[in-house]
């Protein structure tokens, strides 16, 4: 576990694998993975995605949770280009109650901390659909600059919409401690979700099927 101010980064396993089965079928996922087709993600596909990310030498899938242990979602860095020291970053707020909260922002800040302070990246890239103001706000607070617009680039709900492109450079990153202090992050005080039943409990699983 890597401890942050409001959230902690944790290995993406156990409950996270179970939560991802629903997160990967929610709006937040498709908004974050905006290039992907809008199609149902089956259990098998979710498992394959996790396996793919575990083997990914140019990226990682990381869980993030509130201080009370409540899983919030995942942060992803991917397509790391070692010669140019850059990567794409994505935050998926799986538990929608946390959307727009400082916990979600802290998830991004913890990912940036990892990119700049551990992986020594020079630049990170982020994108958002043109109407996704919650993301713009999050990127702006984290210090990203808006660098352009890919026009009508993505198919979205009967239309083709613009993609906004953002970038943040290592010399613009003041350091995790400084930025969190400056932003004065406040916990949202949400109650934790009820604990998941153990997935390997076969009888339990059967009971659920009957329901």
């Amino acid at each position: 576990m890597i401890e942050g101010k409001l959230v902690d980064l944790v290995p993406f396993e156990d409950d996270y694998a179970t939560y991802l089965e629903s997160w990967m079928n929610e709006e937040a996922w498709f908004r974050a993975h905006l290039w992907e087709r809008r199609e149902p993600h089956t259990e098998d596909m979710v498992k394959k995605f996790i396996e793919k990310m575990e083997k990914n030498e140019r990226g990682a899938l990381i869980g993030f949770q509130a201080k009370n242990g409540d899983p919030i979602g995942c942060v992803i860095f991917d397509h790391e280009w070692s010669r140019v020291r850059k990567a794409d970053v994505t935050v998926v707020v799986g538990d929608t109650r946390y959307e727009g909260t400082d916990e979600a922002l802290d998830g991004l800040l913890m990912l940036l901390r990892y990119c700049f302070e551990t992986r020594s990246l020079h630049r990170v890239d982020a994108v958002a659909l043109t109407f996704d103001e919650v993301k713009f706000d999050m990127y702006e607070r984290a210090g990203f600059a808006h660098e352009g617009t890919l026009r009508q680039h993505i198919r979205y709900d009967g239309d083709y919409v613009d993609i906004e492109m953002f970038g943040l450079l290592e010399d613009e990153w003041p350091g995790y401690e400084t930025i969190t202090e400056k932003l004065g992050l406040q916990p949202s005080g949400l109650e934790p979700k009820p604990k998941l039943e153990k997935k390997d409990d076969k009888d339990g699983a059967k009971d659920n099927d009957k329901k």
Binding site: R83, V84, K86, R123, A145, G148, T149, L150, M165, L169
Partner: peptide, 17 residues
């Protein structure tokens, strides 16, 4: 073609970003 985005330091060439 229209210029749509300028990604600062998006590449490294000849010792410069």
């Amino acid at each position: 073609f229209k210029l749509e985005a300028r990604q600062r330091d998006g590449g490294y060439a000849g010792g410069e970003w």
